[in-house]
Amino acid sequence: MADTEPVAIVELGVNDAPGGFALSTEARWNQNEADWRFFLTNGIVFGVRDGTHLVATAALLPYSAGNAWISMVLVTERWRRRGIATRLVDACLDAARQRGLTTWLDATPAGATVYGPLGFAPTLQLRRLRLEHSTHATSTTLANFDIDTFSARDRRAMGFERNALLAEFGARTGSRVVSCGNAMALVRDGRIARHIGPLFADSAADALMLANAISQSESGPLLIDAIASQEQFIVGLTGAGWNIERPFQRMRFGRATAQSEELPFAVAGPEFG
């Protein structure tokens, strides 16, 4: 299709999960096909096709208390620099306005320069860290934790509930909700690495003890999206062999609808908040 031809934005369905997965795989993101099915089943996902081939996406995932997350803004290489990503985000914002939703997103530094002029305001910052192989041993024992108690703590951290998301995560093959002392975290599969988060704790020392215990119980690479202001936790992770891959900027469009009661140490991921 020529650059000058109009681009039609369509709403996608669950059968588009393989096409969305192909786009995030091209971008070398960590989402798996189960993540795409969740977005397409529980959210509003817009896309652009070249014939039957999906070439761009953006998703709006509603949560409770008038909140929603925008993510999965992807355009295949050949279709970039045509303004498609901006149009897809506008479609998500229009859908959110129609439903009275405050929208959030976690942007890369390049993305933040695009979303700022659209009206998004920065809130907190994240740091994505990766661990290839654990560099130290620990004798800490992990305990399994129930998803309802975990969801209640997530609600205090977010200011709104995400029970459907966390229950779906917890029910997936390979997922674990684990605790160590008063720290707790969810561990789940990704395409290229297992992901830790959300992670809650009463102190950085407790959060680090849990992260270390998880790393010792896992055999493959791990990712974690830590809150940047939890500096002691991040320093502890890097000292244990984790490497900072990239920053993310959390941004909000519209007024805050709820106040969080605690700051987590790590989040569910930039695509989920």
Rank of each mutant, 00 (worst) to 15 (best):
M1V: 06
A2Y: 04
E5K: 09
A8Q: 10
I9R: 06
V10M: 09
V10Q: 10
V10D: 12
V10A: 13
E11Q: 14
N15M: 04
A17G: 12
P18E: 14
P18R: 05
P18C: 08
S24M: 14
E26F: 12
N30G: 12
N30Y: 03
D35G: 11
W36V: 09
F38W: 13
F39A: 14
F39M: 14
G43H: 07
I44E: 08
G47S: 11
D50W: 07
G51W: 01
L54E: 13
L54R: 11
V55C: 13
V55M: 14
A56P: 00
A58C: 13
L60R: 07
Y63I: 04
S64W: 08
A65Y: 03
N67V: 04
A68T: 05
W69Q: 11
I70L: 15
S71T: 00
S71K: 03
L74D: 00
E77K: 07
R78P: 04
R78C: 02
R81A: 10
R82P: 05
G83A: 04
A85R: 06
A85V: 05
C92H: 07
L93P: 02
L93G: 05
A95R: 06
Q98N: 09
L101Y: 15
T102M: 05
T102P: 12
W104C: 07
L105R: 04
L105Y: 01
D106W: 07
D106K: 04
P109Y: 11
A112W: 01
G116V: 04
G119T: 10
G119C: 00
A121V: 07
L124A: 11
L131T: 09
H133S: 07
S139F: 02
T140N: 06
T141E: 11
F145S: 15
D146N: 14
I147D: 01
D148C: 08
G159L: 06
G159I: 07
R162L: 01
N163H: 08
N163L: 07
A164R: 10
A164H: 01
A167S: 08
A171L: 04
T173I: 01
T173C: 00
G174W: 02
R176H: 15
V177E: 01
V177T: 05
V178A: 10
G181N: 12
G181F: 13
M184T: 15
V187M: 02
V187P: 11
G190A: 00
A193E: 05
R194T: 15
P198M: 14
L199I: 03
D202P: 03
A204D: 03
A204F: 02
D206W: 02
M209T: 09
L210T: 00
L210Y: 02
N212E: 09
S215D: 12
S219P: 08
D225P: 02
A226W: 02
I227V: 15
S229W: 02
Q232D: 15
F233H: 00
G236D: 00
L237T: 07
T238P: 03
G239W: 00
W242D: 03
E245V: 15
E245L: 12
R246K: 13
M251S: 12
R252K: 06
F253W: 10
G254Y: 00
G254S: 09
T257Q: 07
A258L: 01
E261Q: 15
E261V: 10
A266N: 06
P270A: 09
G273L: 13
